[in-house]
Design a protein around this nucleic acid. Sequence first.
DNA 1: AACCCTATCTTGACACTGTCAAGATAGGGT
DNA 2: ACCCTATCTTGACAGTGTCAAGATAGGGTT
Lengths: 210, 210
Amino acid sequence: MTKPQPHQTKTTKSYHHGDLADSLLKAAIELLRQDGPAGLSMRKLADYVGVSRTAPYHHFKDKNALLCEIAITGFQHQVSTVQAFIQKIECATTQAQKKQLFEDYFCAYIEFADTHAETYDLMYGRAIWKSGQPTEALQKLSRESFKQWLILIEKLQQASILSHKDTSLRVGQSTWATLHGLCRLLIDGIYLKREDLHAMIKSTLVILAV
Amino acid sequence: MTKPQPHQTKTTKSYHHGDLADSLLKAAIELLRQDGPAGLSMRKLADYVGVSRTAPYHHFKDKNALLCEIAITGFQHQVSTVQAFIQKIECATTQAQKKQLFEDYFCAYIEFADTHAETYDLMYGRAIWKSGQPTEALQKLSRESFKQWLILIEKLQQASILSHKDTSLRVGQSTWATLHGLCRLLIDGIYLKREDLHAMIKSTLVILAV
DNA sequence: AACCCTATCTTGACACTGTCAAGATAGGGT
DNA sequence: ACCCTATCTTGACAGTGTCAAGATAGGGTT
């Protein structure tokens, strides 16, 4: 009780924190944003929340589990965003409107990756998918997210904004690969200067458009 | 002299190794391939080569410097590969031939990324470019590599295999972003099963082709 | 040949990291 | 009032990157 607790969510700090799991998750995202992946350690995280080193292990099996949970928040965001765009496209009447919506989503996607670079990296990077082990829940949600992307692609194919020479799966995969490639260049900081971004997006959209 | 030296390149092991720098680099690439990025530590590396923990630090300032050097070997490979393809294209007479060469390079690039996944990740990943600090030499070589890619793109634009509605820089950026995106999906192990790879490549080539 | 300079390598140490095992605490139901 | 159990803490261990200081010996100079 005498030790300083720098970042506690509850003012009535006691032996039992109350909502540690949630606090940890939020703090982890915050630390990740501030100091990058190197700045996020279990111990720093515990310290940041004002709890002992091993306390987080009662809420997250692993560091890997924690990272998966962060990735999940990202996918949740994406799922709801895509859902919203699907609805908008269904409401749109003219083809021009639909095309504009596609471009809007394209930009929104990139902006999300840019402003949540660390989370984005966890969502699609090898830290979890190759080196670590994606949680069951994460795998499920990521599949769901891609399925929704495919639904969006189908709508765009129907509106003749994307090619329907190929299955929605193929078009979805290659379209998304392009989008993802752009994001990676941006957030990994290679070959793509920020002032070129806008021109790049336009150029890429020209390639993708039917 | 009594301690076992598991992996030494020279049979006449003595206090001075002789070509430690080179041995370390090769061993690092080997360890990386075997156990992934988590399996490559300065200490394991030293152990592997049969030398004390801090010996590598006399040849590589940092772990970061070591990683940069590994990335450099990758870029050297790529530069010479692109160079070879440029020459082939200059020799090609028919457009069909040139198109085939482009597709060949496309596949070769992906295959390189696939078979040298860890190196590829160092070359373009955020481990060096965002979290770490790319060496001067690495930056130079990576720029050079991209410049050569642009030369290849120009040739392809001249042959009307790629669009010349935009500058070679733009077309080069977006084309490469697509290619890179595909590679990332593959080596990061997300959304792209190996059996889908061939179909994906074809589908992507259709998109990219004029 | 003897000598020393210097490149090369080693040992010791420190502050970190993830994570396990065992003990301390206290809120909620009996 | 009591205890059960979820929750949190302390101690410990192996592993990491990296610095400082000492040991070694190969090659050029005298």
